[in-house]
Design a binder for these strands. Structure first.
Lengths: 343, 343
DNA sequence: TATTAGCACTCACCATTTCCGAGTGCTAAT
DNA sequence: ATTAGCACTCGGAAATGGTGAGTGCTAATA
């Protein structure tokens, strides 16, 4: 038996995967031969299964258990076996009805999206907020707080807001602050936050401004508030995966929760998807993170125009209901994109 | 034996509690008689223990196990047995070094505080952000986003920022938006957000503004953006409690995580502490929440001047290291208060 | 009278054993 | 090429028995 699979073995593999997805139990030859249309005796199925195991698509936990699909099997499954399904009507409803902007801020919208993804998929929903630094600065404002504290507010094109408190040595008047922000708004109009950063540096060197004390202070002030915080991640529905039998073991559980508490790794994993547009799937150990063993991630990017903003998706067990979840993620990404469109 | 405890039985109870706090194992009479200064035979200790059990301070999991302190025992312990300790030097260090404001926003500061509480205490840290509505509005601003979308930015006295996207039917020019915000800033100067709300309504009725289309639109616009979101909660260190032996059971685990995913209940529990200044302790079932069985909460309020802002604290098992954690929470609350002071 | 030693008893916990059946791989028959 | 038949494997549940920490009671002791 060569490495290319016959039609039949594909069908059997698919049957095993689909059975395992719902039962989470090793699948035996009887089961396959019985429930699925293909009329084959258990013995025949066993032969095929032995081949599939040799090719690395199946594994047996021990001699007298059934077979379990490997990551390789899931990969094949999502790449070629899986028929593309549409989003079910109720799911579509639930996604749609959550889409509204008025009265919320961007963060809230993304947070809710993550919650929605988790509740529709019954796994974990994850949304990575746009990198602020990559966005175009729309508006900048200084607000005087008590004492020597100044609040710097940055608004990006897409409506994201960042604010930072800065403590100054000088005591600026409100009028000075207004003048400063007018000056700066003009200086940086239309630049991305990242560009603003270098623009400020340039300007600091500039002979003209060097002799205007107020302006150069303004430059310094805004510079202090530019360091970007790490991108926000919204991860919801962690309790959903507590229900899964494969994580009933407390040790495994701990490991996963520890991993998710440190959002950084998660971000760098999902950042890899930023480049590739559309649906992206990591199965189990494919991502190099050992903590992801047994977990799969389905992501898609959301964007305005041709500008990719961020990544959203669902994290579940490798035996996730791909056929159902993939369309959900896809549809959600599209809806969020449309929602954030600021023509 | 009447309900008032002799000095000796108090000592024994204390010994049992403290032993149980570190071991998480039922404490037997041998153990008590051996390690603690009071020279008593196991038999004597047993007699006392039997009394304490009858009085409801101890419970036996089963005949041949030691005794376990009840919630009532912990209550007595924190109220009268426990000597007030100071914060250890290293802990104080760790708390202090985290206290800085520059380059962060309020949310970030509180989030970090929660993380810090969890890492210092080794339980969960929790911080409830100030109710925005109770704070005085400092500044209000409209920023035009693409299309018919307007971003409303509200800045409170204490430096908290809320922003909301509002979709309008009219297409305002930037100049109009500036005029509108000037008008409104003047109108609501010095009022709390809650007061602003009613002030806006009043003004909408007002004859003067009724005939100025722009102004009345401004009023409606800002009104739309006032509905407060539920107060933010920062809960960190959930994985810490995964380590605790009493939650090794998966069922218990699930329950707790489910409870914490729904932050609402947590908030309403902690809101009860807003009134009472200073340290506040809930032990196990004292809070009416069934999910809190086995958990205790130590909280304190943080404030600027005599204005209570919010609540922060630590959530741990009932057998928490009270002697260590209480001072930590107390000290942290003071530091955060000082940090947010905006003279 | 308060404390303590002694002792019989209880019961969770651990390790061991036993048993069962689902599932396999092989071989021979179709 | 497929399938029936069969011996074999091995995890997991249930039954068994021993161990020891801990108890409550009683009688001796200071």
């Amino acid at each position: 038996m060569r490495d290319n699979l016959t039609e039949r073995s594909k069908q059997i593999l698919e049957a095993i995967i689909e059975d395992y997805i719902v039962t989470a139990e090793p699948v035996g030859s009887r089961t396959v031969s019985r429930q699925h249309g293909l009329n084959l005796s258990p013995a025949t199925v066993r032969n095929v299964m032995a081949d599939l195991e040799e090719m690395g698509f199946l594994a047996s936990p021990h001699t007298s258990a059934g077979r379990v699909p490997t990551d390789k099997a899931y990969r094949l499954y999502v790449d070629s076996l899986l028929g593309v399904r549409k989003v079910a009507r109720e799911e579509r409803e639930e996604i749609r009805k959550h889409c509204s902007l008025t009265g919320k801020d961007i963060g809230e919208v993304l947070h809710e999206t993550s919650r929605m993804l988790s509740s529709v998929s019954h796994y974990m929903g994850i949304v990575v907020a746009p990198r602020f630094a990559a966005d175009v600065l729309r508006h900048l404002e200084f607000v005087k707080l008590g004492g020597r504290r100044i609040l710097v507010i940055l608004v990006s094109q897409s409506g994201a807001v960042q604010n930072k408190i800065v403590e100054t040595t000088d005591d600026f008047s409100s009028e000075e602050l207004v003048r400063m922000s007018n000056y700066l708004n003009e200086l940086v109009a239309g630049l991305t936050i990242a560009q603003v950063r270098s623009r400020l540096l340039e300007e600091l060197e500039n002979a003209k401004t060097r002799y205007d004390a107020l302006l150069s202070k303004a430059l310094r002030l805004s510079q202090q508030s530019l360091p970007d915080k790490d991108s926000e991640v919204f991860l919801e529905g962690q309790s959903n995966i507590l229900e899964l039998p494969e994580f009933a073991d407390v040790g495994r559980m701990k490991e996963i929760f520890r991993a998710f508490e440190e959002k950084g790794q998660l971000v760098s994993l999902l950042d890899q998807c930023l480049g590739a547009q559309g649906i992206n799937i990591f199965i189990g150990a494919e991502s190099r993170l050992s903590q992801m063993a047994g977990l799969s991630v389905i992501t898609s990017t959301y964007m305005t125009g041709r500008n990719t903003l961020g990544v959203l998706g669902v994290i579940g067990p490798t035996r996730m209901g791909y056929a159902k979840v993939i369309p959900i993620v896809d549809y959600t990404a599209k809806m969020v994109s449309r929602l954030l469109e600021m023509e």
